[in-house]
């Protein structure tokens, strides 16, 4: 189980591969064997009641949480580990930091750097981590701000923005590192209802442009419209998955039916 599985056909290779992922916090088992493949360009929306382990799984993908069994591979690299002399070895903190550089993440609480302006927030990782020139990074940041509709806010501090604007800046910040994969951890859950729409619109726009996205959310509407695949999790396992019209429109599993019935 510890050896890396190399696929033969390059174009068939999924961008994310998770196999038999187990995670426990002390005695509490949160993930009980998750298997999931995500193809390049695919938009996967993970639904499920709170406590189902969906956020934890997302955080395992970029190793913010370590897993206790199984493996997760992103873009051909096993996250958090490497093979040395035919044995699997834990990576150092800096080794893991390198692996995370192609994964963008958007958090529920936005987590913008409050002591930096919007522009500084966006260029921090490209300049400081990816070694981009300041000039290029600023140019790219301005384009991204335009894309999320916040061009005139580049000099503001996060506290001067509404929640929806902050989250759109956070999306631009994650895009600025030109990620191969974007993780969204309940990006609209901390927003006032009237601000959810602007963030979802930005995300739909990204989905259309072929970015690979894994989105943990409670927004059924977004799943219907933007997802290529919907994954329903409950109790630490994937209960059901498939096309949005099947899983949301015609759920097979009683737990999926029970969950979705609350949104009707």
């Amino acid at each position: 189980m510890t050896a890396l599985v190399k696929e033969v056909a390059v174009d068939a290779k999924p961008l994310v591969q998770a196999r038999n992922v187990h995670k426990a916090f002390d005695q509490l088992e949160v993930l009980k064997g998750i298997d999931l493949d995500v193809a390049p360009g695919e938009v996967v929306v993970v639904l499920g009641p709170s406590g189902s382990g969906k956020s934890t799984f997302l955080r395992c993908i970029n190793h913010l949480e370590s897993i206790q069994q199984g493996f997760i591979e992103v873009d051909g690299e096993q996250i958090g580990y490497r093979v040395k002399n035919d044995r699997l070895e834990k990576l150092t903190d800096n080794g893991i930091a390198k692996q995370r550089r192609k994964i963008g993440m958007v958090f529920q609480q936005f987590n913008l750097y409050p002591h930096m302006t919007v522009l500084q927030n966006i260029i921090e990782a490209p300049v400081g981590v990816h070694g981009e020139s300041r000039k290029d990074a600023i140019e790219n940041a301005r384009q991204l701000l335009k894309r999320v509709g916040l061009s005139e806010k580049e000099g503001n501090y996060p506290r001067q923005l509404s929640g929806g604007q902050q989250q759109r800046v956070a999306i631009a910040r994650a895009l600025a590192i030109k990620p191969k994969l974007m993780l969204f951890d309940e990006p609209t859950s901390a927003l006032d209802p009237e601000l959810v729409g602007e963030v979802l619109a930005t995300m739909k726009d990204l989905a259309k442009q072929g970015l690979t996205m894994i989105v943990v959310t409670h927004e059924i509407g977004f799943a219907k419209e933007a997802a290529d695949r919907v994954v329903f999790m409950d109790g630490g396992v994937i209960v059901e998955q498939g096309k949005p019209e099947d899983v949301i429109g015609n759920p097979q599993h009683p737990r999926t039916q029970a969950f979705l019935s609350r949104f009707l």
Binding site: L64, D93, R100, M105, F107, N111, H115, V129
Partner: peptide, 25 residues
Amino acid sequence: RGQAETAQAFGMTKARALRRIIIPQ
């Protein structure tokens, strides 16, 4: 806590996260 986590998620080393994100705050 989310600040250190964000710096981590963006691939910053611990030293850089301290210097650029945590200490200024």
